[in-house]
Design a protein around this nucleic acid. Structure first.
Length: 460
RNA sequence: GGCGACGUAGCCAAGUGGACUAAGGCGGAGGUCUGCAAAACCUCUAUUCGGCGGUUCGAAUCCGCCCGUCGCCUCCA
Protein backbone atom coordinates (compact mmCIF):
# COMPACT_ATOMS: atom_id res chain seq x y z
CA UNK A 1 0.00 0.00 0.00
CA UNK A 2 0.95 3.62 -0.32
CA UNK A 3 1.40 5.62 2.85
CA UNK A 4 2.39 9.21 3.53
CA UNK A 5 5.64 9.30 5.43
CA UNK A 6 6.21 12.55 7.32
CA UNK A 7 9.94 11.86 7.35
CA UNK A 8 10.10 11.72 3.55
CA UNK A 9 7.45 14.40 3.16
CA UNK A 10 5.66 12.33 0.54
CA UNK A 11 3.60 9.25 -0.16
CA UNK A 12 5.73 6.11 -0.36
CA UNK A 13 5.12 2.44 -1.00
CA UNK A 14 4.85 0.77 2.39
CA UNK A 15 6.44 -2.61 2.94
CA UNK A 16 7.49 -3.85 6.39
CA UNK A 17 11.20 -4.45 6.76
CA UNK A 18 10.85 -8.23 6.92
CA UNK A 19 8.09 -8.30 4.35
CA UNK A 20 5.43 -9.73 6.63
CA UNK A 21 5.24 -8.34 10.13
CA UNK A 22 4.66 -4.70 10.96
CA UNK A 23 6.19 -3.22 14.06
CA UNK A 24 3.90 -0.32 14.94
CA UNK A 25 4.33 2.07 17.85
CA UNK A 26 1.57 4.59 18.45
CA UNK A 27 1.95 7.38 20.96
CA UNK A 28 -0.65 6.99 23.66
CA UNK A 29 -2.24 9.51 25.98
CA UNK A 30 -1.22 11.14 29.20
CA UNK A 31 -4.06 9.96 31.43
CA UNK A 32 -5.03 12.95 33.51
CA UNK A 33 -8.41 13.90 32.04
CA UNK A 34 -11.29 12.36 30.16
CA UNK A 35 -10.71 10.80 26.78
CA UNK A 36 -11.94 13.28 24.20
CA UNK A 37 -13.14 13.02 20.62
CA UNK A 38 -9.78 14.23 19.31
CA UNK A 39 -8.17 11.15 20.83
CA UNK A 40 -10.97 9.11 19.32
CA UNK A 41 -10.22 10.44 15.83
CA UNK A 42 -6.55 9.62 16.14
CA UNK A 43 -6.93 6.12 17.50
CA UNK A 44 -9.71 5.30 15.07
CA UNK A 45 -7.39 6.35 12.25
CA UNK A 46 -4.60 4.08 13.46
CA UNK A 47 -7.10 1.33 14.14
CA UNK A 48 -8.14 1.49 10.50
CA UNK A 49 -4.50 1.46 9.43
CA UNK A 50 -3.91 -1.64 11.52
CA UNK A 51 -7.07 -3.38 10.29
CA UNK A 52 -6.12 -2.65 6.70
CA UNK A 53 -2.56 -3.92 7.15
CA UNK A 54 -4.00 -7.06 8.69
CA UNK A 55 -6.38 -7.35 5.78
CA UNK A 56 -3.34 -7.25 3.48
CA UNK A 57 -2.04 -10.28 5.32
CA UNK A 58 0.58 -8.64 7.53
CA UNK A 59 0.97 -9.53 11.16
CA UNK A 60 0.87 -6.29 13.11
CA UNK A 61 2.51 -5.92 16.48
CA UNK A 62 1.00 -2.82 18.01
CA UNK A 63 2.54 -1.13 21.04
CA UNK A 64 1.00 1.94 22.62
CA UNK A 65 2.21 3.66 25.75
CA UNK A 66 0.65 5.58 28.60
CA UNK A 67 2.66 8.51 29.89
CA UNK A 68 1.83 7.95 33.52
CA UNK A 69 4.28 10.39 35.06
CA UNK A 70 4.14 14.02 34.07
CA UNK A 71 3.75 17.55 35.46
CA UNK A 72 0.05 17.67 34.69
CA UNK A 73 -0.63 14.39 36.43
CA UNK A 74 1.24 15.48 39.52
CA UNK A 75 -0.54 18.81 39.61
CA UNK A 76 -4.02 17.43 39.02
CA UNK A 77 -3.55 14.71 41.63
CA UNK A 78 -2.48 17.32 44.15
CA UNK A 79 -5.52 19.45 43.36
CA UNK A 80 -7.83 16.51 43.88
CA UNK A 81 -6.00 15.25 46.92
CA UNK A 82 -5.35 11.82 45.48
CA UNK A 83 -2.18 10.02 44.47
CA UNK A 84 -0.92 10.25 40.89
CA UNK A 85 -1.44 6.51 40.68
CA UNK A 86 -5.15 6.85 41.52
CA UNK A 87 -5.57 9.58 38.95
CA UNK A 88 -3.80 7.55 36.29
CA UNK A 89 -5.85 4.44 37.04
CA UNK A 90 -9.06 6.38 36.68
CA UNK A 91 -8.21 7.81 33.28
CA UNK A 92 -6.59 4.67 31.91
CA UNK A 93 -9.88 2.91 32.68
CA UNK A 94 -11.74 5.73 30.97
CA UNK A 95 -9.50 5.41 27.93
CA UNK A 96 -10.05 1.68 27.56
CA UNK A 97 -13.79 2.00 28.08
CA UNK A 98 -14.03 4.66 25.35
CA UNK A 99 -11.83 2.81 22.90
CA UNK A 100 -13.70 -0.44 23.43
CA UNK A 101 -16.98 1.37 22.86
CA UNK A 102 -15.62 2.74 19.59
CA UNK A 103 -14.54 -0.74 18.51
CA UNK A 104 -10.86 0.22 18.48
CA UNK A 105 -8.77 -2.94 18.64
CA UNK A 106 -6.52 -3.11 21.65
CA UNK A 107 -2.78 -2.86 21.25
CA UNK A 108 -0.72 -5.92 22.12
CA UNK A 109 1.26 -4.11 24.79
CA UNK A 110 0.51 -0.95 26.77
CA UNK A 111 3.74 -0.06 28.55
CA UNK A 112 3.70 2.48 31.37
CA UNK A 113 6.59 4.86 31.83
CA UNK A 114 6.76 4.18 35.56
CA UNK A 115 7.16 0.46 34.94
CA UNK A 116 10.09 0.92 32.59
CA UNK A 117 12.56 2.90 34.70
CA UNK A 118 15.54 0.60 34.26
CA UNK A 119 15.59 0.63 30.46
CA UNK A 120 14.88 4.36 30.46
CA UNK A 121 17.79 5.07 32.78
CA UNK A 122 20.02 2.77 30.75
CA UNK A 123 19.15 4.63 27.57
CA UNK A 124 19.98 7.96 29.19
CA UNK A 125 23.24 6.55 30.53
CA UNK A 126 24.17 5.41 27.03
CA UNK A 127 23.53 8.90 25.71
CA UNK A 128 25.63 10.44 28.48
CA UNK A 129 28.45 7.96 27.81
CA UNK A 130 28.37 8.84 24.14
CA UNK A 131 28.50 12.53 24.94
CA UNK A 132 25.07 13.15 23.42
CA UNK A 133 23.76 14.11 26.83
CA UNK A 134 25.03 16.04 29.81
CA UNK A 135 23.92 16.33 33.42
CA UNK A 136 23.41 19.87 34.67
CA UNK A 137 21.73 21.20 37.77
CA UNK A 138 20.15 17.87 38.66
CA UNK A 139 18.70 17.39 35.17
CA UNK A 140 20.11 15.61 32.16
CA UNK A 141 19.84 17.28 28.76
CA UNK A 142 20.16 16.07 25.22
CA UNK A 143 22.71 18.00 23.18
CA UNK A 144 20.89 18.83 19.94
CA UNK A 145 23.94 20.30 18.26
CA UNK A 146 25.65 16.92 18.44
CA UNK A 147 22.95 15.51 16.15
CA UNK A 148 23.87 16.50 12.64
CA UNK A 149 20.39 16.03 11.22
CA UNK A 150 18.25 17.42 14.02
CA UNK A 151 15.02 18.76 12.51
CA UNK A 152 14.74 16.23 9.71
CA UNK A 153 11.26 15.06 10.67
CA UNK A 154 9.64 18.43 11.20
CA UNK A 155 11.69 19.86 8.33
CA UNK A 156 13.12 22.68 10.37
CA UNK A 157 16.52 23.94 11.21
CA UNK A 158 17.90 24.90 14.60
CA UNK A 159 18.40 28.46 13.37
CA UNK A 160 14.85 28.68 12.09
CA UNK A 161 13.40 27.42 15.33
CA UNK A 162 15.40 29.79 17.46
CA UNK A 163 14.25 32.72 15.38
CA UNK A 164 10.72 32.29 16.69
CA UNK A 165 11.50 30.58 19.94
CA UNK A 166 9.03 31.26 22.69
CA UNK A 167 10.81 28.87 24.96
CA UNK A 168 12.02 29.94 28.35
CA UNK A 169 15.61 28.95 28.24
CA UNK A 170 16.81 26.95 31.19
CA UNK A 171 20.05 28.48 32.41
CA UNK A 172 21.65 25.06 32.62
CA UNK A 173 21.14 24.32 28.94
CA UNK A 174 24.11 24.58 26.62
CA UNK A 175 21.80 25.32 23.71
CA UNK A 176 18.25 26.72 23.90
CA UNK A 177 16.85 23.77 21.97
CA UNK A 178 18.45 21.12 24.17
CA UNK A 179 15.71 19.07 25.81
CA UNK A 180 15.44 17.25 29.07
CA UNK A 181 15.98 13.50 29.35
CA UNK A 182 15.86 13.30 33.13
CA UNK A 183 14.21 15.79 35.44
CA UNK A 184 15.62 16.17 38.93
CA UNK A 185 12.88 15.82 41.55
CA UNK A 186 11.53 18.83 43.35
CA UNK A 187 10.32 18.33 46.92
CA UNK A 188 7.09 16.37 47.11
CA UNK A 189 7.27 15.00 43.59
CA UNK A 190 7.32 11.30 42.80
CA UNK A 191 10.85 10.25 41.96
CA UNK A 192 13.09 7.35 41.11
CA UNK A 193 16.75 6.84 41.94
CA UNK A 194 19.23 7.37 39.14
CA UNK A 195 22.95 7.98 38.62
CA UNK A 196 22.07 11.71 38.48
CA UNK A 197 20.04 11.74 41.65
CA UNK A 198 16.34 11.26 42.30
CA UNK A 199 14.04 12.35 39.51
CA UNK A 200 11.84 11.18 36.65
CA UNK A 201 12.13 10.76 32.91
CA UNK A 202 11.51 13.57 30.46
CA UNK A 203 8.58 13.17 28.13
CA UNK A 204 10.35 11.94 25.01
CA UNK A 205 12.72 9.36 26.42
CA UNK A 206 10.05 6.95 27.59
CA UNK A 207 8.81 6.38 24.03
CA UNK A 208 12.32 5.73 22.77
CA UNK A 209 13.00 3.28 25.50
CA UNK A 210 9.66 1.47 25.39
CA UNK A 211 9.57 1.26 21.61
CA UNK A 212 12.97 -0.38 21.62
CA UNK A 213 12.16 -2.67 24.52
CA UNK A 214 9.05 -4.05 22.85
CA UNK A 215 9.79 -3.69 19.16
CA UNK A 216 13.54 -3.44 18.68
CA UNK A 217 15.81 -0.72 17.35
CA UNK A 218 13.92 -0.10 14.13
CA UNK A 219 10.17 0.32 13.90
CA UNK A 220 8.16 0.03 10.73
CA UNK A 221 5.58 2.63 11.70
CA UNK A 222 5.57 5.24 14.41
CA UNK A 223 2.34 7.17 14.66
CA UNK A 224 0.56 9.93 16.49
CA UNK A 225 -1.17 13.25 16.04
CA UNK A 226 0.40 15.97 13.93
CA UNK A 227 0.92 17.98 17.10
CA UNK A 228 3.53 15.44 18.15
CA UNK A 229 5.79 15.95 15.16
CA UNK A 230 7.64 18.69 16.97
CA UNK A 231 9.11 18.48 19.47
CA UNK A 232 8.13 14.99 20.61
CA UNK A 233 8.88 12.84 17.61
CA UNK A 234 11.78 14.96 16.45
CA UNK A 235 13.41 14.46 19.84
CA UNK A 236 12.63 10.77 19.87
CA UNK A 237 14.46 10.36 16.59
CA UNK A 238 17.45 12.32 17.81
CA UNK A 239 17.87 10.40 21.05
CA UNK A 240 17.01 7.01 19.58
CA UNK A 241 19.38 7.17 16.67
CA UNK A 242 22.08 8.64 18.88
CA UNK A 243 21.77 5.84 21.41
CA UNK A 244 21.78 2.94 18.94
CA UNK A 245 23.67 4.38 15.96
CA UNK A 246 20.93 2.69 13.97
CA UNK A 247 19.03 4.63 11.35
CA UNK A 248 16.22 5.06 10.88
CA UNK A 249 14.57 4.73 14.28
CA UNK A 250 11.28 4.34 12.44
CA UNK A 251 10.98 3.69 8.72
CA UNK A 252 7.62 5.42 8.41
CA UNK A 253 6.19 8.26 10.45
CA UNK A 254 2.44 8.59 10.20
CA UNK A 255 0.53 11.54 11.61
CA UNK A 256 -3.17 12.27 11.69
CA UNK A 257 -4.67 15.73 11.23
CA UNK A 258 -6.14 17.27 14.33
CA UNK A 259 -9.77 17.49 15.25
CA UNK A 260 -10.96 21.03 15.72
CA UNK A 261 -13.94 22.38 17.55
CA UNK A 262 -15.28 25.27 15.55
CA UNK A 263 -12.34 27.41 14.56
CA UNK A 264 -9.86 26.16 17.09
CA UNK A 265 -7.92 23.02 17.67
CA UNK A 266 -9.45 20.93 20.40
CA UNK A 267 -6.89 20.71 23.13
CA UNK A 268 -6.47 20.33 26.81
CA UNK A 269 -4.92 23.74 27.23
CA UNK A 270 -7.75 25.53 25.44
CA UNK A 271 -10.28 23.58 27.44
CA UNK A 272 -12.62 23.24 24.47
CA UNK A 273 -13.06 19.52 24.74
CA UNK A 274 -15.88 17.16 23.94
CA UNK A 275 -15.42 13.87 25.72
CA UNK A 276 -16.00 10.56 24.04
CA UNK A 277 -18.65 9.85 26.66
CA UNK A 278 -20.54 12.98 25.71
CA UNK A 279 -20.36 12.08 22.04
CA UNK A 280 -21.49 8.52 22.64
CA UNK A 281 -24.47 9.70 24.65
CA UNK A 282 -25.88 11.12 21.45
CA UNK A 283 -24.35 9.19 18.60
CA UNK A 284 -23.57 5.59 17.78
CA UNK A 285 -19.98 4.34 17.54
CA UNK A 286 -20.48 3.70 13.83
CA UNK A 287 -21.62 7.24 13.18
CA UNK A 288 -18.59 8.67 14.97
CA UNK A 289 -16.28 6.41 12.99
CA UNK A 290 -18.02 7.39 9.77
CA UNK A 291 -17.61 11.02 10.74
CA UNK A 292 -13.88 10.64 11.32
CA UNK A 293 -13.40 8.54 8.19
CA UNK A 294 -15.44 10.80 5.93
CA UNK A 295 -12.43 13.08 5.66
CA UNK A 296 -8.87 11.99 4.96
CA UNK A 297 -6.91 11.14 8.10
CA UNK A 298 -4.26 13.77 7.39
CA UNK A 299 -6.74 16.62 6.98
CA UNK A 300 -7.97 18.62 9.92
CA UNK A 301 -11.63 18.02 10.73
CA UNK A 302 -14.07 20.15 12.67
CA UNK A 303 -16.27 18.38 15.16
CA UNK A 304 -19.92 19.38 15.07
CA UNK A 305 -23.26 18.02 16.24
CA UNK A 306 -24.74 18.57 12.78
CA UNK A 307 -21.98 16.48 11.25
CA UNK A 308 -22.47 13.65 13.71
CA UNK A 309 -26.22 13.69 13.21
CA UNK A 310 -25.76 13.48 9.44
CA UNK A 311 -23.47 10.50 9.86
CA UNK A 312 -25.99 8.83 12.15
CA UNK A 313 -28.40 8.82 9.22
CA UNK A 314 -25.67 7.54 6.89
CA UNK A 315 -24.87 4.74 9.30
CA UNK A 316 -28.55 3.86 9.26
CA UNK A 317 -28.48 3.48 5.47
CA UNK A 318 -25.69 0.94 5.65
CA UNK A 319 -27.30 -0.89 8.56
CA UNK A 320 -30.60 -1.07 6.70
CA UNK A 321 -28.99 -2.56 3.62
CA UNK A 322 -27.57 -5.35 5.76
CA UNK A 323 -30.79 -5.91 7.69
CA UNK A 324 -33.08 -6.12 4.67
CA UNK A 325 -34.31 -9.38 3.20
CA UNK A 326 -31.74 -11.23 1.15
CA UNK A 327 -33.62 -11.00 -2.14
CA UNK A 328 -34.85 -13.83 -4.30
CA UNK A 329 -33.69 -15.92 -7.19
CA UNK A 330 -34.56 -13.70 -10.11
CA UNK A 331 -31.70 -12.78 -12.37
CA UNK A 332 -28.05 -12.88 -11.34
CA UNK A 333 -26.81 -12.18 -7.85
CA UNK A 334 -25.24 -8.73 -7.56
CA UNK A 335 -21.56 -8.87 -8.51
CA UNK A 336 -19.57 -7.29 -5.69
CA UNK A 337 -16.22 -7.35 -7.46
CA UNK A 338 -16.19 -3.77 -8.75
CA UNK A 339 -17.12 -2.32 -5.36
CA UNK A 340 -14.43 -4.31 -3.58
CA UNK A 341 -11.86 -3.21 -6.11
CA UNK A 342 -12.79 0.43 -5.68
CA UNK A 343 -12.80 0.10 -1.91
CA UNK A 344 -9.42 -1.60 -1.73
CA UNK A 345 -7.82 0.68 -4.31
CA UNK A 346 -8.91 3.66 -2.22
CA UNK A 347 -7.57 2.15 1.00
CA UNK A 348 -4.35 1.29 -0.75
CA UNK A 349 -3.88 4.93 -1.66
CA UNK A 350 -2.75 6.29 1.70
CA UNK A 351 -5.98 5.16 3.40
CA UNK A 352 -8.33 7.23 1.30
CA UNK A 353 -11.32 6.39 3.48
CA UNK A 354 -13.65 9.01 1.93
CA UNK A 355 -13.29 7.25 -1.40
CA UNK A 356 -13.57 3.84 0.23
CA UNK A 357 -16.80 4.94 1.89
CA UNK A 358 -18.17 6.14 -1.43
CA UNK A 359 -17.71 2.60 -2.75
CA UNK A 360 -19.53 1.25 0.29
CA UNK A 361 -22.48 3.60 -0.16
CA UNK A 362 -22.70 2.71 -3.83
CA UNK A 363 -22.68 -0.95 -2.89
CA UNK A 364 -25.47 -0.38 -0.37
CA UNK A 365 -27.60 1.46 -2.92
CA UNK A 366 -27.12 -1.13 -5.65
CA UNK A 367 -27.70 -3.90 -3.13
CA UNK A 368 -31.05 -2.36 -2.22
CA UNK A 369 -31.99 -1.99 -5.84
CA UNK A 370 -30.99 -5.55 -6.70
CA UNK A 371 -32.96 -6.76 -3.68
CA UNK A 372 -36.02 -4.82 -4.83
CA UNK A 373 -35.66 -6.51 -8.21
CA UNK A 374 -35.76 -9.88 -6.49
CA UNK A 375 -32.12 -10.70 -7.07
CA UNK A 376 -29.98 -12.57 -4.54
CA UNK A 377 -28.04 -10.07 -2.45
CA UNK A 378 -26.52 -12.31 0.18
CA UNK A 379 -23.04 -12.05 -1.32
CA UNK A 380 -23.41 -8.29 -1.51
CA UNK A 381 -24.43 -8.10 2.12
CA UNK A 382 -21.51 -10.29 3.11
CA UNK A 383 -19.19 -8.06 1.12
CA UNK A 384 -20.56 -4.88 2.65
CA UNK A 385 -20.15 -6.27 6.14
CA UNK A 386 -16.64 -7.48 5.45
CA UNK A 387 -15.40 -4.25 3.85
CA UNK A 388 -17.08 -2.22 6.55
CA UNK A 389 -15.25 -4.40 9.04
CA UNK A 390 -11.94 -3.16 7.66
CA UNK A 391 -13.11 0.29 8.71
CA UNK A 392 -14.10 -1.09 12.09
CA UNK A 393 -17.81 -0.54 11.52
CA UNK A 394 -20.06 -2.76 13.63
CA UNK A 395 -23.40 -2.07 11.89
CA UNK A 396 -25.07 -2.41 15.26
CA UNK A 397 -28.17 -0.48 16.17
CA UNK A 398 -27.49 2.58 18.28
CA UNK A 399 -27.47 1.51 21.91
CA UNK A 400 -31.12 1.38 22.83
CA UNK A 401 -31.04 3.17 26.10
CA UNK A 402 -31.04 1.87 29.61
CA UNK A 403 -33.34 0.06 31.98
CA UNK A 404 -36.37 2.26 31.32
CA UNK A 405 -36.37 1.45 27.66
CA UNK A 406 -35.88 -2.24 28.27
CA UNK A 407 -38.80 -2.22 30.65
CA UNK A 408 -40.95 -0.52 28.04
CA UNK A 409 -40.38 -3.21 25.48
CA UNK A 410 -43.32 -5.55 26.35
CA UNK A 411 -45.71 -2.60 26.36
CA UNK A 412 -44.51 -1.38 23.03
CA UNK A 413 -44.95 -4.82 21.51
CA UNK A 414 -48.44 -5.04 22.96
CA UNK A 415 -49.33 -1.73 21.34
CA UNK A 416 -47.90 -2.91 18.06
CA UNK A 417 -49.94 -6.11 18.14
CA UNK A 418 -53.07 -4.05 18.75
CA UNK A 419 -52.16 -1.70 15.94
CA UNK A 420 -51.65 -4.61 13.56
CA UNK A 421 -55.16 -5.86 14.35
CA UNK A 422 -56.57 -2.37 13.83
CA UNK A 423 -54.86 -2.14 10.47
CA UNK A 424 -56.22 -5.49 9.42
CA UNK A 425 -59.66 -4.19 10.29
CA UNK A 426 -58.87 -1.03 8.33
CA UNK A 427 -59.26 1.07 11.47
CA UNK A 428 -56.49 3.33 10.23
CA UNK A 429 -57.32 6.33 12.33
CA UNK A 430 -56.71 4.51 15.57
CA UNK A 431 -53.71 2.69 14.15
CA UNK A 432 -52.16 6.03 13.23
CA UNK A 433 -52.88 7.38 16.68
CA UNK A 434 -50.82 4.58 18.16
CA UNK A 435 -48.02 5.27 15.71
CA UNK A 436 -47.97 8.94 16.54
CA UNK A 437 -48.18 8.31 20.25
CA UNK A 438 -45.19 6.00 20.09
CA UNK A 439 -43.34 8.48 17.92
CA UNK A 440 -43.73 11.09 20.63
CA UNK A 441 -42.23 8.63 23.09
CA UNK A 442 -39.22 8.28 20.80
CA UNK A 443 -40.23 5.02 19.15
CA UNK A 444 -40.24 4.95 15.38
CA UNK A 445 -42.21 2.37 13.39
CA UNK A 446 -41.65 0.86 10.01
CA UNK A 447 -44.25 -1.38 8.36
CA UNK A 448 -42.59 -3.94 6.14
CA UNK A 449 -43.66 -7.06 4.33
CA UNK A 450 -42.35 -9.03 7.31
CA UNK A 451 -44.41 -7.05 9.81
CA UNK A 452 -43.87 -3.91 11.80
CA UNK A 453 -40.32 -3.09 12.89
CA UNK A 454 -39.59 -0.57 15.60
CA UNK A 455 -36.61 1.15 17.13
CA UNK A 456 -35.78 4.09 19.29
CA UNK A 457 -34.97 7.33 17.53
CA UNK A 458 -31.26 7.56 16.97
CA UNK A 459 -31.19 11.05 18.45
CA UNK A 460 -29.92 14.02 16.47
C1' G B 1 9.23 36.51 12.60
C1' G B 2 10.20 31.11 10.71
C1' C B 3 7.93 26.49 8.70
C1' G B 4 3.62 24.20 6.70
C1' A B 5 -1.51 23.12 5.25
C1' C B 6 -5.99 24.48 3.18
C1' G B 7 -10.03 27.42 0.29
C1' U B 8 -14.62 22.35 -4.55
C1' A B 9 -22.65 22.65 -4.42
C1' G B 10 -27.03 24.96 1.28
C1' C B 11 -23.49 21.84 4.67
C1' C B 12 -19.53 17.83 5.06
C1' A B 13 -16.04 15.86 1.58
C1' A B 14 -13.14 13.05 -2.67
C1' G B 15 -10.72 14.31 -7.10
C1' U B 16 -4.38 17.35 -8.01
C1' G B 17 -2.82 18.05 -16.11
C1' G B 18 -7.05 15.06 -20.71
C1' A B 19 -13.42 9.90 -20.67
C1' C B 20 -14.40 16.02 -14.65
C1' U B 21 -20.42 16.81 -19.25
C1' A B 22 -16.52 17.20 -10.78
C1' A B 23 -17.34 10.73 -6.42
C1' G B 24 -19.91 9.85 -1.95
C1' G B 25 -22.77 11.49 2.46
C1' C B 26 -26.30 15.02 4.74
C1' G B 27 -30.06 18.49 3.44
C1' G B 28 -33.80 20.15 -0.36
C1' A B 29 -37.54 19.37 -4.71
C1' G B 30 -40.45 15.94 -7.57
C1' G B 31 -41.84 10.76 -8.45
C1' U B 32 -42.51 5.05 -7.60
C1' C B 33 -44.11 1.81 -3.64
C1' U B 34 -47.59 2.16 0.73
C1' G B 35 -54.42 2.64 3.52
C1' C B 36 -51.27 6.81 5.08
C1' A B 37 -46.35 6.96 6.87
C1' A B 38 -41.40 5.04 7.34
C1' A B 39 -37.61 2.63 4.75
C1' A B 40 -35.95 1.67 -0.10
C1' C B 41 -35.55 2.98 -5.19
C1' C B 42 -35.72 6.69 -9.53
C1' U B 43 -35.00 11.89 -11.34
C1' C B 44 -33.27 16.73 -10.27
C1' U B 45 -30.12 19.88 -6.90
C1' A B 46 -21.70 23.05 -8.78
C1' U B 47 -21.61 25.05 -17.19
C1' U B 48 -18.02 25.07 -12.26
C1' C B 49 -13.65 24.26 -8.42
C1' G B 50 -11.42 31.76 -3.33
C1' G B 51 -9.77 36.11 -6.92
C1' C B 52 -6.55 37.85 -10.91
C1' G B 53 -2.80 36.74 -14.36
C1' G B 54 0.47 33.00 -16.72
C1' U B 55 2.33 27.97 -18.72
C1' U B 56 -0.12 24.24 -21.96
C1' C B 57 -3.38 21.73 -27.72
C1' G B 58 -5.83 21.10 -22.85
C1' A B 59 -5.90 23.22 -15.59
C1' A B 60 -10.20 22.43 -10.10
C1' U B 61 -5.40 20.04 -10.91
C1' C B 62 1.24 23.32 -12.68
C1' C B 63 3.54 28.56 -11.81
C1' G B 64 3.15 33.79 -9.87
C1' C B 65 0.62 37.45 -7.16
C1' C B 66 -3.55 38.78 -4.10
C1' C B 67 -7.58 37.72 -0.54
C1' G B 68 -9.23 34.43 3.38
C1' U B 69 -8.89 30.33 7.06
C1' C B 70 -6.04 27.11 10.00
C1' G B 71 -1.89 24.38 12.23
C1' C B 72 3.17 23.93 14.24
C1' C B 73 7.41 26.71 16.37
C1' U B 74 5.11 25.68 24.28
C1' C B 75 1.84 20.65 27.32
C1' C B 76 -1.24 18.24 23.52
C1' A B 77 -3.92 12.61 19.64
Amino acid sequence: MKLYNTLAGEVEEFVPSDGQSVKMYICGVTPYSSTHVGHALSYVAFDVLRRYLEHLGYTVRHVQNFTDVDDKIIQKAQEEGITPQELVDRYVDDFFRCMDALNVQRAHVYPLATQEMSPIIETIQTLVDKDYAYPAGGDVFFRVTKSNDYGKLSHRTLDGMQAGARVEVDEHKEHPMDFVLWKGAKPGEPSWESPWGPGRPGWHIECTSMAMTYLGETLDIHGGGQDLIFPHHENEIAQSEASTDTMPFSRYWVHNGLLQLGEDKMSKSLGNLVSVDQALENYSPDSLRLYFLSSHYRSPLSYSDEGCAAMERSAGRLRHALARETGGKKGDPLDTGPYQERFLAAMDDDLNTPRALAALFDLARDLNRAGDEGRDVRAAQYSLRRLGGILGLTFQEPASGGQDQLAAKPFIELLLATRTELRKAKQYEMADQIREGLDQQGVILEDTAQGTQWQYHPRG
